[in-house]
Design a binder for these strands. Structure first.
Lengths: 536, 536
DNA sequence: TGAGACACGTGACTC
DNA sequence: TGAGTCACGTGTCTC
């Protein structure tokens, strides 16, 4: 059964294959393989436990009326599978379901024998609801949650039994009957994603974002987003120079190389290829901390091809000789010579100080250690610069600033973010408490009417922070459990409690101590009437 | 009257002076001058318009029972002063109030003549409520909002007329009668701060934080906390100090500096003060990138007295020449030199190369230009390092790391903060919408009962996203205005509407189109019944 | 002209 | 020991 639902459905159910359906697709349908995968991803990874996800595909019938029909679906099942397979449906109903399934199966696969097994298990309510969904479709200007969502282009989130029943949607009503507590429809360009759950899940943007991510941006963006999110070195705000300079991620650097080992080879390479116009020194100079000058430089001085993975032939032979000799001679000049040699071809010979273009201190020639050291230091600087560059990318509003200012701005930006975060958190808390108190007030207001409806006698006496509670009610619906739950919820510590049943009457008595909040006698009574008297 | 209330009360009213009261103070009272200032600050700067603030001082009477009595108060008045002086109180009541005030005044000042003028104005309800508060006191284990807050050590926030009436507190009831809509009691160690407003102000942590800031931490912390907030150089994540971070109040930043201009001088100061045990070189070395070594160094090499505002003699002559030539007024370093100079006196003077301790390249002596350049470069490096240091302070979990890693961590930290912020914002939005829908549901549930109470006949027909509304009601209470307000609130676009009055009956008719949200017939009807039928 | 910014090579230091 | 980090003095470039 499980296997049938989660894997086979895609290709088997007629309407899921656009070529077989009678409905001409108005916009191109999602790729079927990935469609189900996305539905799966949508609810498998979620914090909340969604029971199923369905994609309703928009299309037009022959008359031209817009229609939403089964696109694909993924059934995950209830959160607590083992125990929660409540057999609310009768044996007759079960037989009916199995029969329908069997027929369906045979219709699809053409053979009845192997599929019989898979229909032997019980078919839960939600499974059934999911399955029958396949046969449904909605006129977008008619009723139905998916249609409403599609028509209005805005998501619909319905949770709680009453809301499902009162939504004015037959499908929602049915879902409620089959045990659903939450149904959400999110419209897309070419259809609607519906998810449902047997639990009450309050509205949150998590799901929306996920849908938007998984469905709306299925094109080019889907690859680039996650990586740019994760890697600080890649995150970047300036589109025009995102080229490869600051990228450290090996995965995306077919052209760039790990800066730890092989720096600037691309620049060097460019230069051997002549003065490439790809990177003009002028344009790069503002944005790069180090590279801009170097491009010019390397015309004069070929920068350290030694330890780099250069596969240029002429260079290579030369390099390897010098290097393998243990850097005995002025190997620091080796790369220098190399470039000179090249240039020799085109221009002139040995003069190492042709122009005073080179920056910083001239190399202290005639050493053996420094060569490596120099290179290492170079790399360190480079790494630092790349970090600077990356930092520049994540801190807003720091154009054409020097390092010190950049750091300063980064610091204040961090602080700004921090305080904003703190603010947002406290706002959140405010809202939360507001919500809590609202809920309580709700109980309070409800109670004035409810108390007349429920057959219950309640007495509350508050003395300081202590309270005495006496409830006399029908023993039905576990009033004791409800009372205790209420006490817990109200943060009332139980000092003493007793309950006894006489005939059909339960008498409860409790003395409690208030915890975090103070309630007046009336408040407490009203709340308890609401909570314990609640007939659910 | 005003002057009397806002300035004179402090010292005049008997109980506000602890020496005159019969109540022995259990904990030392706040300084009276600053006490009223704080109450004023508390509500004057607030976003919301609070009407008054009172500090209830905790004390014990002779029997040992704990008591809350008038500590001090600040009366600000209603938000819209000009028009809002509603004369709800009768002329008799006004006379009574004035008489009492006059008597009070004479009691205080001893003479009746000069004070008569000040009591000629009308005494508004809230003023009166504030004034009579002075005479009140509460047993902490008795009733009353302040006492409850103090006893439970948790704030109490009551808003809305019903809640005030139902709070079980006589004072709150009275406040409601006198026009208050919101009353808040926040407990402190030695009393309770109470604020009230004639407007409905929903609970938020802003006020709490402010109270905590102004009252609880009046000691040593008050100076250091705000600065750690503002200044990126000082901000810091360690849990024990994070408490104060969320305070943003700019009014308390006499110590902070603009990070853009004058950074980090305090760190420099610490270092030049010799090997202060506050920051040992060893421990500092993890934290400092440059300074730890420098402390030792500065004994050997006279560091950069040149371009700084040093007032040392030998150095000075040199310095002043260079400095006055425009070497950027780094006046923040001035204290720094002083300490260096100090060390010079104790050890030795000019010898720059005493030991080979110096790092990097030796100075190319015998030049005139480079010397200045060297100094400038030194300062640049120093500035950079201080920025690094500051950054380090702001980014958590970066102990003993090198600059590159620090930058990397900073970057990912920024990204982390960013995403957290985004999350928090969306959570906020979720809660907001939840709250909204809750409010609507509230209306919904209320309506089922309310509809029977209000004399009104309503008919709603929904067709697709259009709806037809017909309301027949008393012409009283501007039902048309209420309907239109409701339509606006529900985002229902009016296509057509008409209203006509027959005798005492108003008949309204409207056809509307639903906007962002879909309502079923029942929903819409219920909501409209609630909103239009509301007798307010 | 000159102050500021940057990168460089180098010596010192650390683990 | 040697790889890594840092600070220094310097050369160069740019407004």
């Amino acid at each position: 059964m499980e296997a049938f639902m989660t894997s086979d459905l895609t290709g088997l159910w007629p309407p899921s294959d656009p070529s077989k359906t009678h409905l001409p697709s108005s916009s191109q349908p999602f790729n079927q393989e990935t469609l189900q995968q996305r539905l799966q991803q949508l609810i498998e990874g979620a914090r909340e436990s969604w029971t199923y996800a369905i994609f309703w595909q928009s299309s037009c019938d022959y008359s031209g009326a817009s229609l939403l029909g089964w696109g694909d679906g993924y059934y995950k099942g209830e959160g607590d599978k083992g125990k929660a397979k409540i057999k609310t449906s009768s044996a007759v109903e079960q037989e009916h379901r199995k029969k329908v399934l069997r027929e369906l199966n045979s219709l699809i696969s053409g053979s009845t024998a192997p599929t019989d097994d898979s229909v032997d298990e019980e078919v839960t309510d939600t499974e059934w609801f999911f399955l029958v969904s396949m046969t449904q479709s909605f006129f977008v200007n008619g009723g139905g949650l998916p249609a409403q969502a599609f028509f209005s282009s805005s998501p619909i989130w319905v949770c709680g039994p009453e809301r499902l029943m009162n939504s004015g949607c037959e499908r929602a009503r049915q879902g409620q009957v089959f045990g659903l507590q939450t149904m959400v429809c999110i419209p897309l360009a070419n259809g609607v994603v519906e998810v449902g759950s047997t639990e009450v899940i309050v509205q949150n943007s998590d799901l929306m974002n996920k849908v938007r991510f998984l469905f709306n941006f299925n094109g080019m963006d889907i690859g680039s987003w996650p990586s740019s999110m994760q890697n600080p070195d890649q995150a970047n705000n300036n589109p025009q120079i995102s080229k490869g300079i600051q990228f450290e991620n090996p995965s995306s650097t077919s052209l760039t190389e790990n800066p730890k080992e092989l720096n600037f080879s691309e620049y060097a390479y460019d230069h051997r290829n002549g003065n490439s116009h790809l990177l003009k020194p002028e344009s790069g100079e503002i944005l790069n901390f180090a590279e801009s000058k170097r491009t010019e430089e390397s015309n004069k001085k070929k920068r350290s091809p030694t330890s780099r993975g250069s596969n240029d032939e002429g260079m290579l032979s030369f390099t390897s000789v010098v290097k393998s000799s243990g850097g005995g001679g002025d190997s620091d000049h080796s790369d220098l010579e190399a470039s000179v040699v090249k240039e020799v071809d085109s221009s002139r010979i040995v003069e190492p100080e042709k122009k005073p273009r080179k920056r910083g201190r001239k190399p202290a020639n005639g050493r053996e250690e420094p060569l490596n050291h120099v290179e290492a230091e170079r790399q360190r600087r480079e790494k630092l610069n790349q970090r600077f560059y990356a930092l520049r990318a994540v801190v807003p509003n720091v154009s054409k600033m020097d390092k010190a200012s950049l750091l300063g701005d980064a610091i204040s930006y961090i602080n700004e973010l921090k305080s904003k975060l703190v603010n947002a958190e406290s706002d959140k808390e405010d809202l939360q408490t507001q919500l809590e108190s609202m809920k309580q007030e709700f109980d309070l207001k409800m109670s004035s009417h409810a108390s007349k409806l429920i057959d219950m006698d309640i007495e509350v006496k508050v003395i300081g922070w202590d309270a005495m509670i006496r409830i006399q009610s029908s023993k039905k619906n576990h009033p004791a459990a409800k009372l205790m739950a209420a006490l817990k919820e109200l943060d009332l510590e139980v000092h003493h409690a007793s309950m006894s049943v006489v005939n059909e009457l339960m008498i409860q008595q409790a003395t409690v101590k208030m915890g975090s909040r103070f309630y007046t006698q009336e408040q407490l009574k009203n709340i308890l009437v609401a909570k314990v008297g609640d007939s659910r």
